[in-house]
Simulated assay, not measured.
Amino acid sequence: MQNEKHMRPIPYGRQHITEADIQAVVETLQSDFLTQGPKVAEFEQAFVRYVGARYAVAVSNGTAALHLCAMALGVNESSRVITTPITFVASANCVRYCGGTVEFCDIDPATALIDIEQVRQMVESKPRGYYSGIIPVDFAGNPVNLEELRQLADEHGLWIIEDAAHSPGGFFVDSKGERQFCGNGKFAELAIFSFHPVKHIATSEGGMVTTNDEALYKKLLLYRTHGITRDADLLEENHGGWYMEMQALGYNYRIPDMLCALGISQLSRADEGMVRRRQIAQVYDEAFADAKGIAVLGTNPAAMTDAGETGHAYHLYVIQVADRKGLYDFLRGHQIFAQVHYIPAHTMPYYRSLGHKKGDFPKAERYYEACLSLPMYPTLTEEEQAYVIEKVKEFCKA
C-alpha cells in the first residue's frame, strides 16, 4: 500500500478525459460550428445505437431533458405524477415546472428503487385518471423492471418517463429472457440521461432524451429551441429562406457542438468503462460480503441474467452503516470523499411547504440515515480501492 500521506484525494466519482477526447473538442473548436452544427446530430445517432432507441434529442443537461419530457407529455396544473423520494430533486421538479403535483412513493429497501407494488396500491386507491404518469429512477445504475411497471401503467392509462441518468448501458431481463437496455424506449414513452462529469459519459454538462415515439420526438425538437421551427413542411407561412416561426413556448435547451464532440468520443469507450465499473463493484462485494456492520445495497433481481451477469450500471456503489456520519467524516479525514445519495426529496423545505413531511416515507428515510456512496469510477486504481476498503473496515471495527 502506498504511503497514506502521499495518496491523492479519492472522490466518489471522477471524469476521465483522454487525449482523444481533447482532440475531438479541439477539432470542433476549429470547425465552422460551435453550436447547432453537425456534431449534435452525430452524437444523437451514436447514442440511439448505443441504447437501442429510435430517436434521441441532445440537450443542455439532464434537468432540461426531464423538463422537456414533462412538457411533451402535456403535464399541467391538473397532472399528478408519482416518483421516488430517493433521487436528485430534478426528477420531481420537472413536474412542478409544468405546474403539476408530485406524489412520492416509498422505496424497496433492498434496492432503494421505487416500490412497484406500492405504486400499484397508490394508483388502485384512486379513480382512473387521478394520476397522469410515473417517473421511475434507475437509482445508482440499478435498472427498474420497466416491463412490470409498463403493465401497471397500461392498466391505468399512465405514461412513464424513465430517469436513466445513472444507467446508460444498464439493462434488465424481461419475461422472455431478453436484455432490455435502459432508455431503449420499449417500455417508457421517454427516457432521460445526464452527462455530468461524474456520470458514465461526461460532457461537462449535457443531457439526452430517447424515445420510440415520432410525435414526441418532434415536440422535443421544437421545445428544445424556443418552440421555433424552420421546417418548411411545418410553417404556417413562408416569407423566404430566412423565415422561421415560433409555434409553441419553448426554451433554449440546446447543447454546443464541442460538448457533443466530447460526448461522441466518450461514448466510443463506454463499454470499456462499464466493464471496469462492474469489476470494481465485484471487488467491493467480495470485500464486504462477511463484514459486520456493513450492508451493501442490493441489485434488482430483474437485472441479473440466468448466467449470473449483472445489468447494474454502477454509477454509484452504496453501502449502509449505522454511524454514517461518523464513517463519512472518518473517510474524509483520510482523503476519501465518499458522498450521500440522496436526501429524500420530500424532506426538502420546498416540498415540505407543499404538504410533505418527515415520516411520510419511512423506508426512504431509514435508507437515507445509513447510506454512503463509495468511490466508483473507471480510473479508480486497485490500490486506491484497496485503501478505501481498508479504511471502511477499520472504522466499522472500531
Rank of each mutant, 00 (worst) to 15 (best):
L68N: 14
N76V: 02
Q15Y: 07
F47V: 02
V25P: 00
I17G: 04
Q23S: 13
A65Q: 11
Y55W: 10
D21M: 02
V75P: 00
G62D: 14
N61G: 07
Q45S: 12
G37Q: 08
G37S: 08
Y50E: 02
T18N: 07
G37K: 01
A46S: 04
V75E: 02
H67M: 10
A20C: 10
A20N: 15
E19A: 15
A65L: 06
V25R: 11
V26C: 00
K39G: 00
I17T: 11
Q23M: 11
Q15R: 15
A53F: 06
N61C: 14
L66Y: 11
A24T: 13
C69F: 07
R54A: 11
L73S: 13
V51W: 01
T63E: 04
A20I: 14
S31R: 05
V25C: 07
A70S: 09
P38V: 05
S60R: 14
A53E: 09
K39Y: 03
Q30P: 05
G62Q: 15
R54Q: 09
A64L: 07
A72C: 14
N61K: 13
R49S: 14
G62P: 10
A56N: 06
L29P: 08
G52I: 14
F33D: 09
S60F: 07
T63K: 15
V40G: 00
R54N: 01
K39D: 03
E42M: 04
V57A: 05
A58V: 09
Y55C: 14
F47Y: 14
E44I: 03
N76M: 06
G37H: 03
H67T: 12
A53M: 05
D32E: 10
R49D: 06
A64Q: 02
R49L: 05
A72R: 14
L68Y: 06
E42G: 01
Q45P: 11
N61Y: 11
V75D: 06
A56C: 15
H16Y: 07
V40D: 03
V59P: 09
A53D: 08
N61V: 14
S31F: 09
E19W: 04
V59H: 13
Q45C: 05
E27R: 06
A72L: 08
H67E: 13
V26S: 01
L73K: 08
G52R: 11
L73Y: 08
C69H: 01
Q15C: 04
V75H: 00
R54W: 04
S60G: 09
Q15V: 13
L29C: 13
D21A: 04
T35S: 09
A46P: 01
E42P: 06
V57K: 13
E42D: 12
V40P: 05
E42Q: 11
V25G: 01
